[in-house]
Design a protein around this nucleic acid. Structure first.
Lengths: 221, 221
DNA sequence: TCACACATGATAAATTGATGACACATTCAG
DNA sequence: CTGAATGTGTCATCAATTTATCATGTGTGA
């Protein structure tokens, strides 16, 4: 699931794109001119933009330029203009992809997915699996094989933090900040304790100690 | 600058792509069949791949699948196949982009740049590389080629320091200052020891002794 | 050519300090 | 009150680091 902004002046085209992407599980905002696109972008959190070039009020290139003043959000240009200079100008304006109409709506979806994946929007993992372990952050449940594991809040949050940063080393301080914020416990032992509890409950040794630094979750990359 | 792998069986096409990308400041490896692509990918650190589909030995889809077993490197499919199913299959196989030939070489460059920019986000800034050695301070890992090397903190920092100053001689005092600061150990032997451990673990003899002065990492001179 | 001094390499042993394990204290909800 | 979740303190263990010791190599002057 991602929050998408579709900018396209033709109502029919806009509508069918939106419907398809909603069906694919995304949350979709529709804009029909450049100014509206900027307004919507200001008002809602947006993960990626599909942007036509020929638009009323502000054209797509201007919208792109405006957005890039303040944001690195992924932008996919979708336009009837096949001219190479326009494509080059789009990429120079830091667009992420460029598709010419007419275009298969399925492929558009695939390209959006690829872009989101690369942009790291898939980073906020809602579920995670590794070997016979599975964690679901919607239901806040964890499974080892088919056995549910009982993980109290802190342990689950620690696990999620590790998963969100899998492969990267987290220092004790980072973990303290994330789980406790200001009201950190005194003792360094506390973190070791939670790590140790997680290791016991998970069974597999997927949490690695970096002595003198912190811990990291083995990447499943 | 990025390290690119171009996989394309037609020598002329391959060559002209490589030349153009070299001209754009990249470091380029060329592969002419699928197996060679995998071999090169194993042997060198690669930042992005341009991958044809119709290839001798292993076709592009198989190469993609193989690479995605172990790596999230950006992959741009470049092929004469216009068929939608193939495009969909590519994106489902976690390709990042798909271009059909013939294609403007300038646009190819632009798309590679866009992809690298997007993939570089959140990438490890604190990463040092020299030949087939790489040190990553986010993950606290070191790699020789694609093999991870287990390096404790001090050894990792020493390696980083050497890579940072490749080709320059570092005196024992400089190394002491960098790694220990004020709380330097008494014994001069300590440094020799770490150097010796690094040499063992790295395998290749890339650390040169300058008698009476210190050590240096062989430059590319 | 042959000692000799000196710098470095290699190895083992000692030391230090971080971590893992566990028992227990505290808090909080029902 | 009871039980679960969370936090603290202690101590044994183990790995990283350091020291100590001896072997090896290299250049110098007799």
């Amino acid at each position: 699931m991602a929050r998408l902004l579709i900018v396209e002046d033709d109502p029919d085209t806009n509508d069918s794109i939106c419907e398809y992407l909603k069906g694919a599980g995304h949350q979709v905002h529709a804009a029909f001119d450049g100014q509206q696109a900027l307004d919507l972008f200001e008002s809602f959190p947006i993960d990626a933009i599909v942007l036509d070039i020929m638009l009323p009020k502000l054209n797509g290139m201007e919208v792109l330029r405006e957005i890039r003043q303040s944001s690195d959000v992924p932008v996919l240009m979708l336009t009837a203009i096949k001219d190479e200079q326009t494509q080059i100008a789009s990429f120079d304006g830091l667009a992420d992809d460029y598709i010419t109409k007419p275009c298969s709506i399925v492929l558009l979806g695939k390209r959006i997915t690829a872009l989101l994946r690369r942009a790291g929007k898939g980073k906020d993992v809602r579920s995670w699996e590794w070997k016979d372990l599975a964690v679901n952050f919607y239901a806040y449940t964890a499974y080892k094989g088919n056995e549910p594991i009982d993980l109290p809040q802190k342990e689950l949050r620690l696990l999620k933090f590790l998963i969100d940063n899998q492969g990267l080393v987290l220092t004790r301080n980072q973990i303290l900040d994330e789980l406790w914020g200001l009201e950190s416990p005194e003792s360094d032992r506390t973190i070791d304790l939670y790590i140790s509890r997680l290791r016991n409950k998970l069974g597999i040794d997927c949490i690695k100690t970096i002595k003198g630094i912190g811990y990291k979750l083995e990447g499943s990359e």
